[in-house]
Design a binder for these strands. Structure first.
Lengths: 110, 110
DNA sequence: TGACTGTATGACTATTTTGTCATATGCTCA
DNA sequence: TGAGCATATGACAAAATAGTCATACAGTCA
């Protein structure tokens, strides 16, 4: 990606910081910003879900990767708010590794 | 797949009938059948979700396929209880086409 | 029976997602 | 500062998923 790294804290160097910006836009009232954000919203939410689930379990990307026979670089991609290729397969593996299960359903649109 | 076609009714010719058999096993008490069913359970549930959402919307596979710029054969595969490759991308497209949204979350395992 | 509609399946190609590895950056702490 | 850990990124190959088309099978109905 092209986003310059920030220097203030460890957390702010993560790609998920993009997701936070997106959510700011979504929760705000600027129609343009909101429209732009909507496109990437779903994927950003998934990225944040994974990040939150992992960090709450107090695991590093490498630890989680090892649990699911994957690689640290793969987890990093999945937590990248701009990544568009999340699969059920990976989400299920991650859920299982974290002692959770993946709940999926169609709900009426707001 | 190798399952022989049944001759009793239209519904019974669908691959989703496999999912019904799986659910029978899961809901039953036979430990062996249940263990065997568990492997394919998640995918079968997704297949049924898609089938139910589509038929409740009174659409044919072709109609749904057209809505998401896909093909009838693709929808058929997604509704096949033995299919293992469901993606978030497709589920989202289908949800949107049916006026729904996809709700995904990690929940504590039972 | 024959036409027509809906679904399943096979084969093959195209696209997308993962695996893998190398490496850069940022942070912490001695 | 230097070592070490955690994360991000790029590049490329491998594997998985979707697209496409042809066709078979089932059921319905005139």
């Amino acid at each position: 990606m092209s986003k310059p790294r920030q220097r203030t804290s460890r957390r702010s160097t993560r790609k998920t910081s993009d997701a936070v910006e997106i959510l700011d836009a979504v929760l705000g009232n600027d129609p343009k910003a909101r429209a732009a954000a909507d496109k990437a919203y779903d994927d950003a939410v998934i990225a944040m879900m994974i990040y939150q689930a992992r960090t709450r379990a107090r695991m590093t990307q490498k630890q989680l990767a090892d649990l699911i026979d994957s690689d640290q670089a793969v987890i990093s991609r999945l937590e990248d708010a701009n990544y568009r290729g999340h699969s059920l397969t990976m989400l299920r593996k991650i859920a299982r590794a974290l002692g959770k299960r993946l709940d999926i359903r169609f709900v009426d649109a707001a």
